[in-house]
Design a protein around this nucleic acid. Structure first.
Length: 549
RNA sequence: GGCCCCGUGGUCAAGCGGCUAAGACGCCGCCCUCUCACGGCGGAAACAGGAGUUCGAUUCUCCUCGGGGUCACCA
C-alpha cells in the first residue's frame, strides 16, 4: 500500500486539495503594516481575566495598525463544550467594549475567511491531512490508551523523556501489512505528524513579548487529527492562522512549551510563520508563593465577577492595561480624560514576568475612574448594575432620579474630586442615609466626651437656629454652627481646641459631629451642609428631633 | 525528572555599563480640615547569591538558588 493509497483509504470522501484551499483563502488586501489578530477561546462557558488580557492586546495591535481583529471559536474539545458557550463569549467581549471586525457571531459568520468555528472546518483540516498522508508527512496510529500509558510507565522507569518518539513511536514505521490489518480489524486511529526534529537541535526564536530565546526542536510525533476526526489545537492553530492570514498570535506563555511543534508544522507545510506574543501569566499570591490565577480559588479571575461586584468596566480595562503596558499609568496621568484608544500600545512595554493580581491597585484604579465620571454617568452605570444585582437600590434610585443624581454630584468635578467609592456595590452604603428606607442611625457615634444631656441640648438649640436659617452655602452654615459654641462652653477655634483640649468642654467639631450623626446617622459623610440641603428642611428637622433623647 | 520562561522595595514597575536606583498601589507620620473622602508634604522599604568581563556592574557572561509553566486523542 503506497502512501497515496493509504490516504485514499483513510479519507475517501476528501477530494479537495491544499491548492484549492489556498485559492479559497487568498492574501488579505490590507495597508502596509496592518496586523491581523484573533482571539480564539473555547466555548466552555467560563470567561476569565486571561481571555480579556489577551483580547486587549489583540485588539490594540490590530486596530492601531488598521488591521483586522477577529473571533474564532475553538470547539474541538467536545467534552468541554457548554450549551451557551459562544453566547457567553460574545456577550462578555461586547460588555468589555471589544469589537470584532470579523468572525463568529450569533447570526452566523461575518467575513470571508470562515467558517470561524473549528468544528465546521473539518473538510479543511482533512484536506491537508490527506495530502500530508500522501506525502508521508503523517501516518495513522492505532495505539490504545493502555499502550500509551505503558510507554509512559516505561519512560518513567528508564528516566527517559515522555511522549511518542523514537522507539516509542510504535506506528511510525510499521509495515504496511500491520496497518492494513489494523484497518481491517476496524481499530480506531489518529493521525500523527512525522517529526523530523531532534532534541539535539536548538532553534533561536524571537518572541515579541519575551524577546529572543532558544528552544529545543520537537521530536514528538504529535497527534494532529483525533479519532473523532477533529484536529488537535496544534494542527488547527497552524491551518487556521495560515489560511486566515493571522499575522500576530497572542496567547499565554503556557503555550511556549508547545511552540516547537507549531514552528515545525508551519515550516513543514511551507507556511509563513506568524509573529508570536506570549504573554506572561497572571499570578496570585497564595500564602507565600505565587501561583496561576485559578478558576476555582480566585473569584476575581472570572469576568463575571466584575459584573456582579459592580466594578466599572472601564476601570477593569484600565487596570488590565496597567498590567499590560508599564507606561500606561504615566500616559493616563498625562491624559486624564483621553479615550483609551489614543494610548499607543506597544508589545515592547509588556512585562516578561508574571504579574501578581493586585486587588488594592484595582480598587484604586476604580476610584480614579469613577471620580472622572459625571454624576449622570455614575447614575446610569449604577442603576444598570443595581437592576440586576440590587433591586432595592434600583427602586430607590429610579424613584427620584433627580434627587439621586444630586446626591451623586456632591464633591464631583473640580480639581480634587471626592473618591468615596469605585465599585457600584459600594454606592448603597455611601449614600444610603439619604433615603429614609435605608436610614439606620447609629447614635453611639456621637462624640464620646460630650454627655447625653449636652448632645440633646445642642440638637435643640440647633433646631431653633435651623428653622429660621438663612444659610445658603457651606460657609454661612458653618458660621451658624460656630455661633452655637459659647453657650455650651465649646470653642469655635479648632486650633485652640487641639492645642489645649482640656480648656473647653468641646469644639465646633463636636457640634458638627452631633449634627452629622443625627442627620446622616453616622460619623462619616460628605460635606454636611450639602447633605442637609439635599434632604430638605422637613426631613432634617425630623431626624434632629429623633436624635434628641 | 526533561524542556522552557522569569528574578529591582510587600505589590506593579522605570532602568538598558557610571544615577543620592524613578514613579504608582499599599503602609506610617505630619499638614489642610466640621467628620470622612480628596489634596499637599515627608518616611520606612529593593537590584536573590557567587564567580567572571570591565577602570567601573542592577545593567553583559556563566554557575547556584528561588519562583512559574509545560510534558494528553485539553485548549
Amino acid at each position: 500500500m503506497t502512501n497515496q493509497e493509504l490516504a485514499n483509504r483513510l479519507f475517501p470522501e476528501v477530494t479537495t486539495t491544499p491548492a484549492e484551499m489556498e485559492a479559497r483563502y487568498p492574501e488579505r488586501h490590507l495597508p502596509e503594516g496592518a496586523k491581523v489578530t484573533r482571539i480564539a477561546p473555547s466555548p466552555t462557558g467560563f470567561m476569565h481575566l486571561g481571555n480579556l488580557y489577551g483580547a486587549m492586546v489583540d485588539e490594540r495591535l490590530a486596530h492601531q495598525s488598521g488591521g483586522i481583529f477577529y473571533l474564532r471559536i475553538e470547539d474541538t474539545d467536545r467534552k468541554r463544550l457548554v450549551e451557551d458557550g459562544v453566547e457567553t463569549i460574545l456577550s462578555v467581549f461586547k460588555r468589555f467594549g471589544l469589537n470584532f471586525d470579523e468572525g463568529a457571531t450569533l447570526e452566523g459568520d461575518k467575513g470571508d475567511y470562515g467558517p470561524y468555528t473549528q468544528s465546521e472546518r473539518g473538510f479543511i483540516y482533512k484536506t491537508y491531512v490527506k495530502d500530508m498522508l500522501a506525502k508521508g508527512m503523517a501516518y495513522p496510529c492505532f495505539c490504545t490508551e493502555e499502550e500509551l500509558a505503558e510507554n509512559h510507565r516505561l519512560q518513567e522507569e528508564n528516566k527517559e523523556n515522555f511522549g511518542y518518539y523514537g522507539k516509542y513511536a510504535i506506528w511510525r514505521d510499521r509495515p504496511a501489512e500491520d496497518v492494513e490489518a489494523a484497518l481491517e480489524a476496524g481499530k480506531p486511529w489518529v493521525i500523527r505528524f512525522r517529526s523530523q526534529g531532534s532534541i539535539e537541535h536548538k532553534i533561536r526564536f524571537e518572541d515579541l513579548c519575551k524577546g529572543t530565546m532558544e528552544i529545543t526542536e520537537n521530536d514528538q510525533d504529535v497527534v494532529i487529527l483525533k479519532s473523532d476526526g477533529l484536529p488537535t489545537y496544534h494542527f488547527a492553530h497552524v491551518i487556521d492562522d495560515h489560511l486566515m492570514h493571522t499575522t500576530h498570535v497572542v496567547r499565554g506563555e503556557e503555550w511556549l512549551g508547545t511552540l516547537p511543534i507549531h514552528i515545525q508544522l508551519f515550516d513543514a507545510l511551507g507556511f509563513k510563520r506568524p509573529k508570536y506574543v506570549h504573554t506572561a501569566q497572571l499570578m496570585k499570591l497564595d500564602g507565600t508563593s505565587k501561583r496561576k490565577l485559578s478558576k476555582r480559588k480566585d473569584p476575581e479571575f472570572a469576568l463575571d465577577y466584575y459584573f456582579s461586584e459592580g466594578i466599572p468596566i472601564d476601570a477593569a480595562v484600565e487596570y488590565v492595561m496597567t498590567l499590560l503596558n508599564s507606561n500606561f499609568e504615566e500616559w493616563r496621568r498625562a491624559n486624564q480624560t483621553a479615550p483609551l484608544d489614543e494610548f499607543k500600545f506597544n508589545t515592547k512595554k509588556m512585562s516578561g514576568s508574571g504579574a501578581l493580581f493586585d486587588l488594592d491597585k484595582l480598587s484604586d484604579v476604580c476610584k480614579n475612574v469613577v471620580a472622572r465620571m459625571s454624576a449622570e454617568q455614575v447614575y446610569d452605570l449604577t442603576t444598570a448594575w443595581a437592576e440586576d444585582y440590587d433591586t432595592q437600590l434600583y427602586g430607590l434610585m429610579t424613584r427620584d432620579a433627580a434627587y439621586t443624581k444630586a446626591i451623586l454630584s456632591i464633591g464631583r468635578g473640580g480639581k480634587k474630586p471626592r473618591k468615596d467609592f469605585g465599585v457600584w456595590n459600594e454606592v448603597k452604603t455611601y449614600m444610603g442615609f439619604f433615603f429614609d428606607e435605608l436610614f439606620a442611625p447609629d447614635y453611639t457615634q456621637m462624640p464620646s466626651h460630650v454627655d447625653g444631656e449636652t448632645v440633646a441640648a445642642v440638637l435643640k438649640a440647633y433646631m431653633d437656629v435651623y428653622r429660621n436659617s438663612e444659610a445658603s452655602d457651606a460657609n454661612s452654615w458653618y458660621e451658624e454652627v460656630k455661633a452655637l459654641c459659647p453657650q455650651f462652653g465649646f470653642t469655635a477655634d479648632m486650633k485652640a481646641y487641639k492645642a489645649e483640649p482640656g480648656k473647653y468642654k468641646g469644639s465646633v467639631g463636636d457640634i458638627a459631629m452631633i449634627l452629622r450623626v443625627a442627620v446622616c446617622g453616622r460619623a462619616q459623610a460628605p460635606d454636611l451642609f450639602s447633605c442637609m440641603e439635599l434632604m430638605g428642611k422637613e426631613r432634617v428637622l425630623e431626624r434632629l428631633q429623633a436624635a434628641v433623647r
